[in-house]
Design a protein around this nucleic acid. Structure first.
Lengths: 349, 349
DNA sequence: TTGTATGCGTTATCAT
DNA sequence: ATGATAACGCATACAA
């Protein structure tokens, strides 16, 4: 009596398939994994037996034997941060193509958490690690990174080492943004910088400074305010800027979230954008394009960057490359409605 | 000569530690995994040897042996969707506490992709599956779900089966929102529904209908327009509503993204919110609170829901419960600036 | 309290 | 082309 294909009963292993098909264990393995050293008729026989039994290979056993898990670990500060998921998707795009799965860990930007997660990932014998905007220089982190598991830095460059790295050309982006503002007549441009531990934030600030110097803009130290890449930091910075005696006519925020914070502050203060104040963000997260926000921003190709990072990583895993490689993505200014000419009226005060 | 703690050399296994410490293999295992059947002095000796060698347990081997991977699979349509990451974080919160890691898969809402990912997850022998707004009734999916691996549905209920499930009280939320609008004098309320395959969307629509009936509001079939939980769908629906002869004075969108779409449409049409049109979303994603958006919405406790789902799942994994359990979270109306009184002027036309 | 032996489910090596 | 066998690294039942 013919039975329907079994829907995975108990625990069926390769042994059972071998018995069912009347062949040797190794033949089953070869047949199922598409090796060419098995007769077509045998392969078919094995395949049928496997289906009949509802056999599914165990990645666990395979991983142990092959010393390869087909798993990548991704460390990020917080998936809830609107820019993170796009990077993640990019990584996944490639991982999928390479039959790898992703173990995702949030560190909340905490060093301890990152280290703990790194240990787990390493204990799980991931084939590689993607560090998305995370610590990469602290000694303990470095020690873990030196354990031999390939890794790649995404949006974060080491200050002391040369690693595989994917980032964006911050200089290019910031420069384009400032030139855009200058074309509107702005000369006094505030800058909200990112967290101090971030090399990316450093680069952006540096680019701002260079542009200010080159274009002979107001070079006033109070024009740079510390933010944290978050809305609240942008909000505080925005308030501070708006309360200044000689306040800037434009603000360049180190990322879109900070810019949103400025919007909140401006709205509260009754300052209109771009009427009274021009504003530029960086990231081009989706919400920047929504009509009520309509933020001029410097776009980052996050998904592509994620894919690029995963590509570098896979090369490493396959030992296709020995020396470190850096990939820099261009940044593109996306002009929307948050930038405009310098207000004509003289400011009060 | 004392050497510094080795930073993971070659491949050191439990064997090496045993040799180094001069004890048996099993003693190392017991000592390191904190069993109570090992003398304290021995444990210390073992621990030191392990540290000296830079030994780290292999989760792969352990998983094979224990038939437990301490890994949960999460299936979601798209992490880039602003509401997804919060659920994910909630799941992770609990997973962390339970020493589990998360394998995250995006399905893009495609059945084929979901099935492919489910297979991989099962082949990887995850301890459990979290289905976040995914297909759960198609025969192939059901077959996979029946394979014995515990699972939980998040924000998605089966139409045909009784499963572990965590959702929100859509009826309560929608009702509160409509009553809020009614208190402003609205009687003609448009509704943008979610995708047809979504049971959650069904519940929301049903709740809308019940409220319309109970409160004797305009009951006009054209007042319900199909959306897709995305901005573009909301935009199209918004345009349609705004072009109607007798257009609604308020719109209730099945989620925040759809509401944003309406905002885009309204902005384009020069319709002011809430002056000419009141708008309510659902989700309370972070951006709903930003000043330029300032959306009245029905809040979902996504992170807590994620944690609750993971909790149900872990119970299942530990076989602490046999019969299916449902958890319903309350929904809370968050009144912001997108709702107001019915416009006083007679509409043109 | 410690040690020995076995098996978890594969793939790879080597015969046949 | 196929089959037997040995790892892979660990946890556990049982023996000492």
């Amino acid at each position: 009596m013919v039975k329907k294909a079994a829907t995975v009963k108990a625990k069926v292993s390769i042994h059972d398939v071998a018995r069912e098909a009347g062949v040797a264990l190794s033949t089953v393995s070869n047949a199922l994994s598409g090796k060419d050293n098995v007769k077509e008729s045998t392969r078919k026989k094995v395949q049928e037996a496997a289906d009949r039994l509802g056999y599914r290979v165990s990645f666990v056993a395979r991983s142990l034997r092959m010393q390869r898990t087909f798993t990548l670990g991704v460390l990020l500060a917080d998936v809830s941060n609107p820019s993170s998921p796009d990077f993640l998707r990019g990584v996944e795009d490639l991982a999928d193509r390479e039959s790898c799965s992703l173990l995702v860990c949030n560190t909340d930007g905490l060093l301890d958490k990152q280290i703990a997660h790194m240990r787990v990932l390493l204990d799980r014998r991931v084939d590689g690690l993607v560090l998305l905007s995370q610590y990469c220089d602290p000694p303990l982190v470095r020690e873990l990174l030196n354990s031999g598991t390939p890794f790649v830095l995404l949006q974060r460059r080491s200050r002391q080492h040369v690693d595989d790295y994917v980032g964006a050309d911050n200089h290019e982006g910031i420069t384009a943004a400032i030139e855009h503002l200058v074309s509107f007549g702005h000369k006094r441009i505030g800058f909200i910088r990112g967290p101090t531990e971030s090399t990316t934030a450093d680069e952006r600030l540096e680019a701002y400074r260079l542009a200010v110097e080159r274009l002979k803009l107001d070079d006033d130290p109070t024009l740079v305010i510390q933010g944290n890449y978050q809305v609240d930091g942008g909000y505080r910075a925005g308030r501070e800027f708006l309360s200044m005696d000689k306040r800037p006519t434009a603000i360049l925020a180190a990322n879109d979230m900070s810019a949103i914070g400025v919007m909140n502050a401006a709205s509260e203060a009754g300052v209109s954008i771009p009427g009274d104040l021009s504003l530029i963000g960086l990231d081009d997260i989706e919400l920047a394009s929504y009509a009520p926000i309509n933020l001029t921003t410097i776009a980052l190709q996050r998904r592509d960057m994620g894919t690029a990072a995963a590509t570098l990583l896979m090369d490493r895993i396959r030992k296709k490359r020995k020396k470190a490689k850096q990939v820099l993505f261009p940044m593109k200014l996306v002009v929307r409605g948050s930038t405009g000419p310098v207000p004509v009226k003289k400011k009060l005060k």
